[in-house]
Design a protein around this nucleic acid. Structure first.
Length: 461
RNA sequence: GUGGGCAUAGCUCAGUUGGUUAGAGCGCCGGAUUGUGGUUCCGGAGGUCGUCGGUUCAAAUCCGAUUGUCCACCCCA
């Protein structure tokens, strides 16, 4: 049998894991600095928790888990005979793999409403599964990384989440544009153009403005049943385009004067921008009226992050949702959250070489022994080195030096310590920097001092 | 879910109108060098041509199916 992986899944080898941990570590520390608490939920949820939350398209992409035991005994015979998979499913599967982290979070909040004190802030970094057709940067199993706060409608949190995006992307070393819009403003746009009943169709279409241009969006809207004149009005309004945060184009106020919901959206944006006014931001933050985001549960401000120079697509997104916990019987709990597209961020960091050369968790020092007695001596040295918190290892036999060096080189260890008869009797070991090729004689104490403070810096030799 | 491209050594890829023993580069192993990797030189190993079936005297090459992968939609991270 030829071993292989299921479609759309990947192994993460040691080199990848060290980099992923570096990225996740930045995220984790940033979340905790901002007061978000860790949370994990099970990989599988009841199908009743998941279905109906992502629209018809989303439901199709849910991975379903076959019931245990003789699952056909309780199958819906009629549906089975009729080959009606959709009707058969509930009778043979009652669990599924989670599709995102937001819905399980909403379920968690609803279940634990009496224990939690609000506002409740949590972050979550876990894999999710989608039975999508894989493409570059799209997998069937991938990690999501979310930060959400529920139980407060303060617009302070919208501003905080923008700062969180700013902090994280700056620390990673990526230049991004953080786009902000508000669904209420879009509702106002639809109302003012007389197509309030085609709101969803309008948002789906204008979200593609970047990609297909205004003619394309016009076609898209017509195709989705929006009157041509109204569609043209929508595009006229969007023509004013993006604006730096804090400089909301004047035209919008006038345009939305007859739409209470639109004015509310505008006011919300103004308040968020007011919170951001004197903050120091490293990344570009812009108001983008064409930003719509597909997910229908957003009700207020919405966010999206894109790389300044990349065709990578969205690196993250989020927004405010007022009614998500309603679905689990907990009304009146407003939430706002953001997601980091860690898989794409990883790919982009790789592309731009943003990972440090030395990553924590990596082996720092490989001992190489040249004869049996030195090998046992080196085995003893490991105890001291490891006791000092240094990640150290010993080649398993006193093989030929060339062979051991080759192994050291291939494994990417930054430092090698050679132990032969001379070193063993003098207590002064040959300590080699594999990158520069330089080597010198060092006592064990000197080596510990060189390496003890985590990953070695460039100039430690 | 719809439409299309691709599948040959560990990796990236050549392979003529179907015709003897399927090639290259990189990587790997060994040696040059018995205390020095990454550079150089010499030698070597490694392939059921994704899988199954069909056409043919003859298939990596043509046809069908299937699986995987990539791309564009749909949707999304």
């Amino acid at each position: 049998m030829k071993p292989s992986l299921p479609k759309g899944t990947r192994d993460f080898g040691p080199q990848q894991m060290l980099k992923r941990n570096y990225l996740f570590g930045i995220l984790r520390r940033a979340f905790e600095r901002y007061g978000y608490q860790p949370l994990e939920t099970p990989a599988m949820e009841k199908l009743s928790t998941l279905t109906g939350k992502y629209g018809e398209e989303g439901d199709k992409l849910l991975f379903k888990i076959l019931n245990n035991g003789d699952y056909l005994a309780k199958a819906d015979r009629e549906a089975l005979a009729a080959l009606d998979a959709q009707r058969l499913t509930p009778s043979i599967s009652k669990r599924g793999l989670r599709y995102d982290l937001t819905v399980p979070f909403a379920r968690y909040v609803a279940m634990n409403r009496h224990e939690l004190s609000f506002p409740f802030k949590r972050y979550q970094i876990q894999p999710v599964w989608r039975a999508d057709r894989p493409q570059r940067g799209r997998y069937q199993e991938f990690f999501q990384c979310d930060a959400d706060v529920v139980g407060s409608d303060s617009l302070m949190y919208e501003a905080e989440l923008v700062l969180l995006y700013d902090t994280v992307f700056t620390e990673i070393g990526l230049s991004v544009e953080i786009r902000i819009n508000n669904r209420k403003l879009l509702q106002g746009l639809a109302e003012s153009c007389g197509i309030a009943d085609r709101f969803v169709e309008m948002t789906v279409a204008i979200d593609k403005l970047d990609k297909i241009g205004s003619e394309g969006v016009l076609e898209e809207m017509k195709k989705r049943g929006i009157d041509g004149a109204a569609a043209t009005r929508v595009l006229e309004r969007l023509a004013e385009g993006k604006a730096p945060a804090g400089e909301l184009p004047k035209g919008w106020k006038d345009f939305l004067r007859n739409s209470p919901v639109g004015k509310k959206g505008l006011a919300e944006l103004e308040e968020v921008f007011a919170y951001l006014e004197d903050r120091t931001l490293q990344q570009a933050v812009v108001f983008d009226p064409s930003l719509a985001r597909g997910l229908s549960y957003y009700t207020g401000c919405i966010f999206e992050v894109v790389a300044v120079d990349g065709q990578m697509g969205s690196l993250g997104g989020g927004g405010r949702y007022d009614e998500l916990t309603n679905l689990f019987g907990l009304p009146g709990v407003s939430g706002v959250g953001i997601s980091f597209g860690v898989e794409r961020i990883y790919d982009l960091m790789e592309e731009k070489g943003l990972f440090p050369e030395e990553l924590s968790g990596q082996l720092q020092l490989l001992l190489i022994a040249l004869d049996e007695e030195s090998h046992r001596h080196a085995f003893g040295l490991l105890e001291t080195l490891r006791g000092e918190g240094i990640s150290a290892d010993l080649y398993p036999q006193p093989a030929k030096l060339k062979k051991q060096m080759k192994y050291a080189n291939a494994s990417g260890v930054p430092y090698v310590l050679m132990v032969g008869e001379e070193e063993r009797v003098s207590g002064s070991y040959t300590f080699k920097d594999m990158r520069s090729g330089e080597q010198k004689q060092c006592s064990l104490e000197q080596i510990v001092i060189n390496l003890a403070s985590g990953p070695p810096s460039q100039d430690s030799l």
